[in-house]
Every structure is written in structure tokens, then in C-alpha cells.
């Protein structure tokens, strides 16, 4: 769906590139996690995917972002938004209207959706994120988690093929975060491609099908969670944590078939290495 060719990007009035020679392909149906230290270029990358760069934020761009074969420079943000739903951190600042239903209608009207179809699309999107009962509420009365669900619903309402999410759980508590991850996994199963930027390695390890690690604007690692978390040195250099269980297994120097990244896998690996249980 996406193909990034040698993408380099400088924000206005800066000499250091925010992204450097990024080559990346995103295929249909992926659950792609993006991690990296702050200032590593994660958010910039997300903005290049949804067209904010180069259309809303300007700067010097070299290389290409191809979306379904078309350079994003030739598409408008609105064109891209028909297939790409964007969700950001801090939902409070990103919700546009004052009422739940209106928040969804807003996008549908902008995209000139037939009014007869809106009713069902609003219903489906709210249902999908589990807040159908809040349809007539004022946004001010929602909790942080509900607001973030609403933001996701608003992105889903136009039935995008891809969701690009930039730290959508940063303001949420652990349960709230997990619920968002579960939702994303559910949409992913239904065929929506998920591109998720986050710091939460424990969750990414469990949910992502592929992870890329950014360090100072460059991709320094790319692969399945297991592949990523076995590259200690590079992760350390990029300032990225690894799951606690994985850390322990490595300290112990145990043998393993596939690198344990969850509690159950870790327990099984330890018991096996200690000669107990199979």
C-alpha cells in the first residue's frame, strides 16, 4: 500500500534531517509497530504517511512516498484520508466538535458521503469501538479513554483501509491502553492495516506483526518482534526498552527455540532450561 523510497525530510529552518533515507514498504493487512526515542522521527514518519507532510507541514523533502503507487505530493490530505484514518495522542486537542455523533458526521460530510448512508456508518463505527451508548453525549463529559475511542471511531467512520496512530495510548492507564490494542487487533483481523507508533514495548511485542525501530531519523532495525528484541545492542543505542521477560531470559543466557516475549513463553522457557516440565 505504501512504498517509501529514500525518503529524507528536513523541517523548516533545520539543518538536521528528521528522517534520513527511509526505505519502507507497508503491505496490506500488516500490524506495523514503530518505536524509537523521542525526536527519532516517529511522528514525522506518520505525518508523511497521512499527507500532513508535505501538504500541511512544509519543509525540504527528498525521495518519495508512494501511496497505492501515487506520490503523496500529488494527492491532497483529503484524498489520502479517504483510505487512511489518522489518530493522534491527546484526543482532547484533536476532537473537533462538541458532540459524539457530530464528531463522526463531520468527516462523513466533508467526504461527501450520501446522507442516507451516514446513519449506518455512524452506528457501525461507534459499535466497533464499543461506545454506541454514548452517541448523544457531549464530548466534554467523556473520560480520556472514551475520547480516544471516539477519535478512533471518527477515523473509522469513513471506512479507511489503513489506520495510522501516533501514540494513541499515551494518556491512558494500562487497562485503557490494552483495550485500545485489543480494538486495533480486532480491526486488523478484519483486514484493516494498522500502523502504530508507541513506546509501550510490552504491548507492541504482543500485538505487532512487524516492528521498525527508528534512531535519529533512520531505520536501524526491522523485523518481527522476536527479531527486534534479540538485537540488544542496537535497541540500547536507540534508547528502546525490551520486554522484562525477554531481558531476564537474556541475562540467564538460556537456550530458546524462539525468543520468549510474553510471560507464558518466558515461564515455559525457564522451566525447560531448568529441566522441569515439557
Amino acid at each position: 500500500m505504501y512504498k517509501l523510497n529514500n525518503l529524507t525530510f528536513y523541517y523548516k529552518n533545520t539543518e538536521v534531517p528528521a528522517l534520513k533515507n527511509i526505505n519502507l514498504e507497508i503491505a496490506h493487512g500488516e500490524f506495523l509497530g514503530i518505536i524509537g526515542h523521542s525526536g527519532s522521527g516517529k511522528s514525522t514518519l506518520a505525518k508523511c504517511l497521512n499527507g500532513i507532510i508535505p501538504h500541511y507541514q512544509h519543509g525540504r523533502m527528498r525521495g518519495q512516498v508512494l501511496f497505492n503507487g501515487n506520490p503523496t505530493e500529488t494527492l491532497s490530505i483529503a484524498d489520502i484520508s479517504r483510505s487512511v484514518g489518522s489518530v493522534f495522542d491527546d484526543p482532547e486537542s484533536h476532537l473537533i466538535t462538541m458532540e459524539v455523533e457530530q464528531e463522526l458526521i463531520f468527516g462523513l460530510e466533508n467526504m461527501a458521503v450520501d446522507p442516507k448512508e451516514m446513519q449506518i456508518k455512524v452506528e457501525n463505527a461507534l459499535e466497533a469501538v464499543g461506545i454506541a451508548h454514548l452517541r448523544n453525549r457531549s464530548i466534554n463529559t467523556l473520560s480520556g479513554g472514551q475520547k480516544q475511542r471516539l477519535a478512533i471511531a471518527a477515523a473509522l467512520a469513513v471506512e479507511p483501509k489503513i489506520l495510522v496512530l501516533d501514540e494513541p495510548t499515551s494518556e491512558l492507564d494500562p487497562i485503557g491502553s490494552k483495550e485500545i490494542y485489543n480494538l486495533l487487533a480486532k480491526f486488523n483481523k478484519k483486514g484493516i492495516t494498522v500502523v502504530l507508533i508507541d513506546q509501550k514495548v510490552e504491548l507492541l511485542a504482543r500485538y505487532a506483526s512487524r516492528i521498525i525501530v527508528l534512531n535519529q531519523g533512520e531505520i536501524i532495525l526491522e523485523g518481527s518482534p522476536r527479531e527486534i528484541f534479540s538485537a540488544d545492542e542496537k535497541l540500547n543505542k536507540a534508547g528502546v526498552d525490551i520486554p522484562q521477560v525477554t531481558k531476564l531470559i537474556k541475562m540467564l543466557g538460556f537456550r530458546y527455540g524462539k525468543l520468549p516475549i510474553s510471560v507464558d513463553e518466558g515461564a515455559a522457557c525457564i522451566l525447560e532450561n531448568m529441566g522441569i516440565g515439557k
Binding site: Y56, A78, S81, G85, S86, S93, I96, N110, A112
Partner: peptide, 16 residues
């Protein structure tokens, strides 16, 4: 930014 990604101002709108 959020308004941009939700297609605001992209052309003719419909009305619910």
C-alpha cells in the same frame, strides 16, 4: 491538523 485529516475543506460536502 486533525481537521485536515478528516477531509475538511476538500470540496463539496453533503449534509446529514
Amino acid at each position: 491538523m486533525a481537521m485536515e485529516t478528516r477531509g475538511c475543506g476538500s470540496g463539496p460536502r453533503t449534509c446529514y
